[in-house]
């Protein structure tokens, strides 16, 4: 079983801003899981991670799965909740009405609205895979998937 304690960290010096992580994320969350078919899906899969540039560096930004998540407090449909055992914020899409309160309250700007599906786009740490797709896709090893104690600064 995969460790629930692992988190995503980023070595900013290694990030080229190539957006391979964005592409891999979109693909991993597409219906067809095939890049040539995925771009033709009616409601296109959008990346849960976005690379932002600031002062010459590149920073992949996605959900932090906060300990005290503002998005959960703001969710008026009780679609978002924190699962302490999995150490993540879980999203019940069936309950979501697309009010975007979570978008408005995320202090990291890590949630975006998908207007077509009326669903919030946010990182689910690729729950159904052995490790997140962005980690595998990063060509420079800038995305680090490890437990907090293992992070090397």
């Amino acid at each position: 079983m995969r460790s629930f304690m692992k988190k995503l960290y980023y070595d900013v010096k290694k990030c080229l801003g190539c957006k391979s992580c964005e592409l891999a994320c979109s693909l991993a969350h597409s219906l067809t899981q095939d890049i040539f078919k995925a771009i033709k899906e009616e409601k296109k899969s959008l990346p849960r991670k976005k690379v932002h540039s600031s002062k010459g560096n590149n920073y992949p930004v996605s959900c932090r799965h906060c300990k005290e998540p503002k998005c959960v407090d703001a969710c008026m449909a009780a679609a978002l909740y924190r699962d302490d055992q999995k150490d993540m914020v879980v999203y019940d899409q069936e309950r979501c009405v697309g009010c975007w309160m979570c978008v408005m309250s995320c202090p990291y700007g890590a949630i975006r609205p998908n207007i077509l599906t009326k669903l919030a786009i946010r990182c689910d740490k690729c729950q159904d895979k052995d490790e997140p797709a962005c980690v595998k896709a990063c060509p420079t090893g800038a995305i680090i998937w490890c437990e907090e104690a293992e992070v090397k600064v």
């Binding site: 995503l8 680090i144 992070v151």
Partner: peptide, 20 residues
Amino acid sequence: DNFGYPDIMDLVKDKEKLYV
């Protein structure tokens, strides 16, 4: 349109250890 968290990360109170 590309305004993002990295633009404000040095200004906010809580400092993360996410970007190493």
